[in-house]
């Protein structure tokens, strides 16, 4: 047996049963049209109404603020590492966010393993819900090759009508289905229907970026002096929202917080954002990326050049959150296409 069917009306039961063993985070509506991942009593995923959550589910693996160490300074420093983790299920993660987590897995394991991330990750079960339609106008997952996902999740469910066509990727995935879900074995006709629906979706997902994604590092290598950065310098507010909502942004600040006894305290990390003014300021006051245009250029290069070259994978997952959240409508796809266009004009000259 490989794939199973879970009836839609029984998905809530599966969700609730998981809570016996795990803290379960699912999608819920925060305000009309805006969704968040949260610990919910009931399965409340909006399914076909779904739009990417305000923050991606990375917050459960790499929280906004996190304690790294606890220390006591008297009479001599005594330090203990703090690595928090618990058994958790992220329920209803879409392909773009699964790719986001996959990429963070690479980052936090590369060079030096970051246990504060990896131990949380190791305790996390990911239940995906696949997308058959683009979720909203800003989605461009297909352009970066991230509509398809074949790794980085435990269970994947696809809405094929009144049932979820469900497959697992890991032994843990199989185990929790057997333990907590009410399911039927998928018959050949179900599998055919599932495959047909999946192949039919291809045409619905537009290729919005006007080149093959693998060409982007080259385009960006040649785009340091692209006029687009000057134009964005005038528009960008430097508010950091594009960083904060990004599934693959992982920069952080580290700081000490002493308790009022002035003897013990914590060392913490907090999400930082490379579009903020002070991101590259050194103690002597020099700012190595003083303008908003330079900082935005850096952010785009992280997604499509620097990290893409190092890990051979786009660090934009196509969720469109940065575009949606930008108060001054800086559009990622438009910016990338402008870089491509200006490059080509440059080539012709």
């Amino acid at each position: 047996m490989k794939d199973v069917l879970i009836k839609k009306k029984e998905i809530g039961l599966f969700y609730k049963n998981l809570k016996e063993e795990f803290t379960v985070y699912g999608v819920k509506q925060k305000e009309k049209g805006f969704y968040v991942f949260d610990e919910t009593d009931e399965f409340s995923d909006p399914l076909e109404e779904y739009k990417p959550t305000i923050l991606p589910p990375k917050k459960f693996l790499f929280p906004q603020q996190e304690t790294l160490l606890r220390f006591n300074t008297q009479p001599h420093p005594d330090i203990k590492p703090v690595i928090g983790s618990k058994k958790q299920v992220l329920f209803g993660v879409r392909p773009c966010d699964i790719h986001g987590i996959r990429l963070l897995d690479k980052i936090f394991n590369a060079d030096h393993e970051d246990k504060n991330y990896t131990q949380k990750r190791a305790m996390t079960i990911i239940v995906g819900i696949d997308c058959l339609e683009p979720c909203y106008e800003h989605a461009h997952c297909a352009s970066v090759g991230y509509l398809e996902v074949d790794d980085g999740y435990d269970i994947m469910m696809t809405d094929i009508g009144d049932t979820f066509y469900t497959s697992w990727k890991t032994p843990q995935g199989e185990e929790i289905i057997r333990k907590y879900a009410k399911f039927l074995e998928a018959k050949n006709e179900d599998t055919d229907k599932f495959l047909r629906m999946k192949s039919e979706r291809q045409d619905r997902f537009e290729n919005k970026i006007k080149t093959n994604v693998s060409n982007l590092p080259l385009f960006f290598k040649n785009a340091d002096n692209d006029p687009v950065w000057d134009e964005l310098n005038d528009r960008c507010l430097g508010c950091g929202r594009c960083n904060i909502v990004c599934p693959t942004c992982y920069c952080f600040d580290v700081y000490d917080c002493m308790e009022l006894n002035l003897a013990s305290g914590e060392r913490c990390r907090q999400w930082d954002a490379c579009t903020l003014k002070d991101f590259a300021v050194v103690s002597t006051g020099e700012n190595f990326r003083p303008s908003r245009g330079q900082r935005l250029r850096h952010r785009f290069n992280r997604k499509f050049n620097y990290l893409m070259t190092k890990y051979n994978a786009s660090f934009c997952v196509g969720c469109g959150r940065c575009t949606r959240s930008c108060p001054v409508n800086i559009d990622l796809v438009e910016t990338v296409n402008a870089v491509i266009k200006n490059n080509r004009i440059h080539e012709k000259q």
Binding site: F34, V36, I54, C239, G240, I244, W271, L276, P327
Partner: peptide, 21 residues
């Protein structure tokens, strides 16, 4: 530790819906 970044950073980390929306 007094921020010199805009309120948006804290607002977005709290997962608020942007008021401009």
């Amino acid at each position: 530790r007094i921020p010199d970044y805009p309120v948006c950073v804290e607002c977005q980390m709290k997962e608020n819906v942007c008021l401009f929306e």
